[in-house]
Design a protein around this nucleic acid. Structure first.
Length: 611
RNA sequence: GGGGGUAUAGCUCAGAUGGAUAGAGCAACGGCCUUCUAAGCCGUAGGUCUCAGGUUCGAACCCUGAUACCCUCACCA
């Protein structure tokens, strides 16, 4: 955005998501572009700053006001600009305010403190915008004007074992990000980089083969993958000859031996079935089509090493093929290699990831690649990203991002395990959550039918686990705690679901009396105004989540929305109000319900009509 | 030892580009159901934002140093 000119209706607009445009100098509400009050204010104030100072490209620094008397939003950029110009910030702020183009969005702009500009939104415009959304003339979330092709790599369980709690975060955070990116109009390609290759599969196939041709028996055995793995591992460690047998299976597998491959396939199918059950239970959008297992890149690994050799990036060290990059140092400041080929000729994790990067950059033509992977792997991703860039495996403009997340801890502050120290199966965790939810629902609502209680606890139990995770900053470790996540108080799934059910109850009771799609929203109380503003801010939050990939921003927003609704609910009778006011409030309730449902949907949560 | 991360109320966590008086929930105490689901709402109390410097009109946030804990550093993924 440069200078004083705003964009003409329908013009190319380099700043994304502007809800207002100008025609003949008059700011109007644009219908073809994403609604975003904050960006619109930034645009207006930036233009005024440019008008007042002659500077282009000024950051108006618009944020939400911390207190009601400071307006709805505030522009904090004036102080920095005044300093740059060596002028008095308050005087500059006054000039900027008087340079503000007339518009229907800002009702009042006041200079305060050392040079803040407090912005008060126009009630009529707010009510009009809410009405338009209620009438379905526009969606609160509309497509961005520059969709990107974005590859999101998430979940990626190891198929040798059953999914455990360690897979929870990546799976649900990734799924939320994918939903958010899609709803704003990006072209998203999911990639489930499952581990289906490597030495441990030789061991598993050897164990499976020794059980004989009885496929029913094999199926039964594989039903508990964890036990199956333990048995195979134990034979590998203890049984004479078994380790050699396992290794011979690895060689046969990699050599493309048909029998061996078919046994491997049988195992993989079985294990994938386990994953799909979990995905269904969790409500995760990953499907078979999204699978790009490690074995998918098998034939590319030698090419990757060759390409690195041709790029003169390869160094042989202690028998292994390595890439040394300046920026990575190991112990005692010694050069740190990324090993792409072992001394025995085998390939590694880094090699596979380089092949995946090249595939995503070249074949999938990604403009942005997101890796939703545990924070402990950050060095690995820094290395492969750097190597892929240097080797030209991905286009220079393609953004590579490690969307790192922290570890789930037990109450003792150590990584979450069972009492005996084993990893907790994801299936068991989710089942327990549903069971606990059922106990609570039965205690709170004994009058509901058993079927209804079961349905509620299925939704609440799963939502509780997901929401507890998504509502935390993904980069930090957090303590897993049943009582907090299943509590109906605070920023939890049960509270959110209850708020939604309560809202739906009003809409049910009002019957066919009011038609939100034809009614007019009015502002008669501060609680209504607060609710409208909060609803209209939904696109702003979604936009930030799409660019920065922090689902907890969305959770915080929805929690605040629910809280503001509750205050409205206490202060403003809906069904007891008369005629137009009743219609306005029912419409507002309906908008709140739609926003909550869509927001929870973006988190990957189901809602309940009744609790 | 190198690199990275974390440190905010008794507990669990928020705090998006530095903004005005640092926020929730739990736990504690006190109010509100003849009124749209009380699984709710309102209020009280609780903080030298680990410590010490620095940058600035302004710092939980940026810089330097210290302390504590966590992660990571050659053929696992």
């Amino acid at each position: 955005m440069s200078g004083r000119e705003l964009y003409q209706h329908g013009d190319y607009c380099p700043t994304r998501n502007i809800g207002w445009c100008t025609i003949h100098g008059i700011l109007i509400f644009g219908t073809h572009i994403m609604f975003n009050i904050k960006h619109s204010l930034e645009l207006l104030v930036s233009a005024a700053i440019a008008e007042a100072t002659g500077l282009s490209d000024c950051n108006a620094n618009v944020i939400y006001s911390s207190r009601p008397e400071f307006g709805d939003y505030q522009a904090n950029g004036i102080m920095a600009i005044a300093k740059q110009l060596k002028s008095n910030p308050r005087e500059l702020a006054v000039r900027v305010v008087s340079a503000l183009q007339s518009n229907d969005l800002i009702a009042d702009a006041q200079v305060a403190g050392p040079g803040f500009i407090n912005l008060f939104l126009n009630d009529v415009t707010l009510a009009t915008a809410a009405t338009r959304f209620a009438h379905g003339e526009q969606n609160l979330l509309d497509a961005v004007d520059h969709p990107q092709r974005i590859v999101v790599d998430y979940s990626g369980p190891n198929l040798a074992k059953e999914m455990h709690v360690g897979h929870l975060r990546g799976t649900i955070i990734g799924d939320c990000i994918v939903r958010v990116l899609e709803v704003v109009g990006h072209d998203v390609i999911r990639q489930n980089h499952v581990g289906d290759w490597g030495t441990q599969f030789g061991m598993l196939i050897a164990h499976m083969e020794s059980l004989g041709e009885n496929s029913a028996k094999v199926h039964t055995q594989l039903a508990d993958l964890e036990t199956f793995y333990r048995e195979a591992k134990s034979r590998f460690d203890l049984e004479p000859g078994f380790a050699d047998l396992a290794r011979s299976y690895v060689v046969k597998l990699q050599g493309g031996d048909r029998d061996c491959l078919s046994a491997w396939q049988k195992f993989i199918d079985e294990s994938l079935g386990h994953c799909e059950d979990i995905y269904e239970l969790l409500g995760v959008t990953l499907s078979k089509d999204d699978l790009r297992p490690e074995s998918f890149y098998n034939n590319e690994l030698a090419n990757i090493v060759n390409a690195l050799r041709e790029a003169d990036m390869l160094t042989a060290s202690e028998g292994a093929q390595c890439v040394f990059l300046e920026e990575f140092k190991g112990k005692e400041g010694s050069p740190l290699p990324a090993i792409v080929q072992k001394s025995d000729g085998g390939y590694l994790y880094a090699t596979t990831d380089l092949a995946a990067l090249r595939y995503r950059g070249k074949n999938l033509a990604a403009q942005r690649v997101l890796y939703v992977v545990d924070a402990r792997q950050s060095l690995h991703f820094q290395q492969v990203f750097a190597i892929a860039r240097k080797a030209g495996f991905v286009p220079g403009a393609c953004s590579l991002e490690h969307i790192a997340y922290g570890t789930m801890m037990g109450e003792d502050g150590k990584p979450f395990k069972t009492r005996s120290g084993d990893t907790v199966k994801l299936r068991e965790l989710l089942d327990e959550s549903v069971r606990r939810a059922h106990d609570i629902v039965s205690a709170k609502s004994p009058e509901l039918s058993p079927e209804h209680r079961e349905q509620i606890s299925n939704v609440v139990g799963i939502a509780a686990v997901k929401y507890a995770d998504l509502s935390k900053n993904r980069t930090s470790d957090y303590v897993f705690d049943w009582s907090t996540m299943l509590s109906f108080d605070g920023n939890t799934a049960p509270y959110m679901l209850y708020a939604y059910a309560r809202i739906k109850s009003i809409l049910r009771r009002q019957g066919e009396g009011v038609h939100p799609e034809r009614s007019e929203v009015r502002i008669t109380a501060v609680e209504e105004r607060n609710l409208i503003i909060k609803i209209l801010q939904f696109p702003e939050v979604v936009d930030v989540v799409a660019s920065e990939c922090y689902p907890n921003y969305l959770c915080a927003y929805l929690y605040e929305l629910a809280g503001i609704f509750m205050r409205f609910y206490e202060a403003c009778p809906v069904l007891k109000a008369e005629s137009d006011l009743r219609a306005s409030r029912v419409t507002l309730v309906s908008l709140t319900a739609a926003t909550l449902k869509q927001g929870l949907g973006l988190l990957g949560l189901e809602t309940l009509e009744q609790m």
